[in-house]
């Protein structure tokens, strides 16, 4: 991969009202790369994700995606540019069916773009006509994960994708992420589950108090180093 990165986050800051939650965060992400952001609860990880997806307006800094400055672009515009997003909470539309959840943002309403994922998570394809509100917490997370990984996304943003998910499905998620990398997609993953981080990360960032306090691209002993720094 050469040339400009797919996603460039430059000195991004933002928060809620007067409170700054994320302070000057930067990262570059090329196609086929996985960046993981980790840190304790309440350090600003989800806020960072919301600043990148456009759900929240940054107070300063830039978000450049596929060579375009999207800092001022609304969330739906970024999604249409190819950002797939699975949030930490409120992950699916409970009142819609599973199929509607997967297709409502596509004009053709075709489910074909999820072919591989249905093979990996057969439970989902069995429940297409069911209301998403009837799924368990882990199943909702998987549904949201799959929506973010639809074939037409080029950058997949996942906020704590493994929360409440069974270990065997976490392994399948890691597998799906690796396959996604091979097709040239980039991943930005916020995760506290270090085993997933260890399994997929090309770069890891440790967030504390809204600032990046440690970053590494060295994969050897990644988990031990992160784990050590997560302690006080």
């Amino acid at each position: 991969m050469s040339g400009a990165p797919l996603l460039s986050v430059e000195n991004l800051s933002g928060g809620y009202g007067e409170i700054v939650v994320v302070n000057g965060f930067s990262l570059d992400l090329a196609g086929g790369e996985v960046a993981c952001v980790t840190g304790r609860n309440g350090v600003g990880k989800s806020t960072l994700v919301r600043l990148v997806t456009g759900s929240l307006k940054p107070s300063s800094g830039r978000v450049v995606f596929r060579g375009r400055d999207l800092t001022a672009a609304p969330a739906h515009g970024r999604a249409r540019q190819g950002m797939g997003y699975a949030p930490q909470e409120g992950v699916v539309f409970d009142n819609l069916t599973v199929a509607e959840n997967l297709t409502l943002h596509h004009k053709d309403r075709s489910l074909e773009r999820y072919g591989d994922l249905f093979t990996a998570f057969p439970r989902l394809s069995e429940r297409l006509t069911q209301r998403a509100g009837t799924l368990s917490g882990g199943e909702k997370k998987i549904l949201s994960f799959c929506r973010a990984l639809a074939e037409d996304t080029v950058l997949v943003i996942l906020d704590e994708p493994t929360e409440g998910v069974q270990p065997e499905n976490i392994a399948l998620m890691a597998e799906a992420i690796r396959r996604g990398k091979e097709t040239g997609r980039a991943f930005l993953i916020v995760e506290q589950n270090l085993s997933l981080v260890e399994a997929v990360a090309d770069a890891a960032y440790l967030l504390d108090h809204g600032e990046c306090v440690y970053s590494t691209t060295e994969r050897d002993g990644l988990r031990a180093r992160l784990s050590e720094r997560l302690q006080l």
Partner: peptide, 25 residues
Amino acid sequence: SNTGARIKAMVENPELAAAVGIDTA
């Protein structure tokens, strides 16, 4: 209709609706 589904999605969770590409405004 798809529009009906989009409206329901927007009513339930506007932030997520925008994040999946629906122009909620």
